[in-house]
Design a binder for these strands. Structure first.
Lengths: 247, 247
DNA sequence: CGCAATTTTGACGTAGTTCAACACGTGTGG
DNA sequence: CCACACGTGTTGAACTACGTCAAAATTGCG
């Protein structure tokens, strides 16, 4: 647990979206260890360990054997694959409080690349250690199941915004809403987004050309639905945007 | 376990894609119970129970509280949601050997509707029973984690074929390949598909108009990549189709 | 400052949509 | 048995949203 918090202050200065252990996706796994009487030492020794990741650095790459599961604590990560033409294909993003690599348990190797966007940080949990712990601490295994399901839920939601060949306008609206919800802390919902993600990355993810995305951005601004200042975006009409997102 | 197999013969006659327990997604959960000395009776009493589902019947509906997880044993199911315009939106399909509803553990309610296409059948596992068992049988919980991850892996693969705004041709190629892989038993890969799924459902899932889909189907046939006889489709050039699927 | 990377704007082409008609099979009722 | 409706699938012609290519504008960084 110590490891989860010791770098908190320095990172908060750089990036407003740091999450502490209370808002961390890994909490259900860390928590029983923290409170359980039998295994406090396990956690302190190795269960979760903070790692800082510079911009564009890979947490892991596709097809590498599963080693650890990560929880984002600050910054943003992109989940990518490389297509036959060796172009990057962005499959999703991961924000603070969300997991990365948790879906590699089945084929025991990572299904995608995980790359930091900007300065980011994660808590790393070595899977073999986690499994070893889960044999000792009875609560932990069920928490783990819930935890994996929660991330699966988030990923599915992110994904659903994409399908069904909506118009580019709907796609972007859905994307903005999805991002806003995920970046908002449960206590206070923000309507101002700092999008660390570049237009190119958004366009890639949405399956649009950068030019098209740019036009849609300016159209939404012209229609008074959003206000753009570089990477800062204010959602002016959340209801209208939601309507637009659903076609 | 008895429940998993007793209807086998009758169903095999109607539908060639019945899976027995050895090929069932639920096997890692059923198996330790079958072999473990302590809990044989649990399984026989209630753990898995076969249910037949007539065409267009719903296994469960979106937002219903989580009750059971299902493993498809024959037929096909579609996973759907309803958009703001009350139109059906198909999110995916589930074939024999795959799970349905397994991703509802986190918010404790189903995230979609599950509807049978044609006569189908499932093994039903009540989640509360499963959890109760998993406290008793030590192997089971870890198997469950793997099991959930496996389905998550299958779903993600199905998803990925959709994204990135490929051409309609690539979309259909990717869809056909995905379906073929999932319907093939691990021992023998088929190149002949019986598509229980209607063109309308495929078009809906791929986000295309039925007219467009029809044109693409005939184009692929004209190009000698597939051979169409109603709902039966033979993949003639698997390599070329794979190439096409990847853009 | 100055160069490179990123984002925006404009003009034109195309893939997929839209709308409309038709074809086929199946079930229903007179 | 035919007439008709209805679901499903195919085909044609005009329209449009997005892609493509090219260039300008803006941002960010050494």
């Amino acid at each position: 647990m110590k490891n989860c918090t010791k770098h908190k202050v320095t990172i908060e200065k750089k990036c407003n979206s740091y999450v502490d252990c209370n808002h961390c996706a890994m909490e259900p796994v860390c928590l029983p260890i923290k409170t359980g009487t039998q295994s406090i030492t396990l956690s302190d020794n190795y269960l979760s360990k903070r790692i800082s990741t510079p911009p564009n650095s890979a947490l892991f790459s596709k097809d590498e054997p599963l080693d650890s599961i990560y929880a984002v604590t600050s910054g943003v990560f992109k989940i990518t694959d490389t297509n036959e033409s060796f172009e990057e294909q962005i499959l999703g993003f991961r924000f603070p409080g969300e997991l990365i690599g948790e879906d590699a348990i089945y084929p025991k190797k990572y299904a995608y690349n995980a790359i930091a966007i900007g300065n980011s940080s994660v808590c790393k949990v070595v899977v073999s250690d986690l499994m070893a712990c889960s044999n000792i601490v009875s609560d932990l295994q069920f928490n783990l199941i819930e935890l994996l399901n929660r991330q699966s839920y988030i990923s599915q939601k992110e994904f659903r915004a994409l399908i069904s060949r909506k118009s580019a306008e709907s796609l972007l609206a859905a994307f903005l809403i999805n991002i806003t919800q995920r970046k908002s802390q449960p206590d206070h919902v923000t309507d101002v987004l700092y999008l660390q993600i570049s237009r190119d990355n958004i366009a890639n993810f949405l399956g649009l050309r950068r030019e098209t995305l740019s036009r849609i951005f300016t159209k939404l601004q012209k229609d008074q639905l959003i206000e753009i200042q570089g990477k800062n975006i204010r959602l002016l009409e959340l209801e209208k945007l939601t309507l637009l997102a659903n076609l």
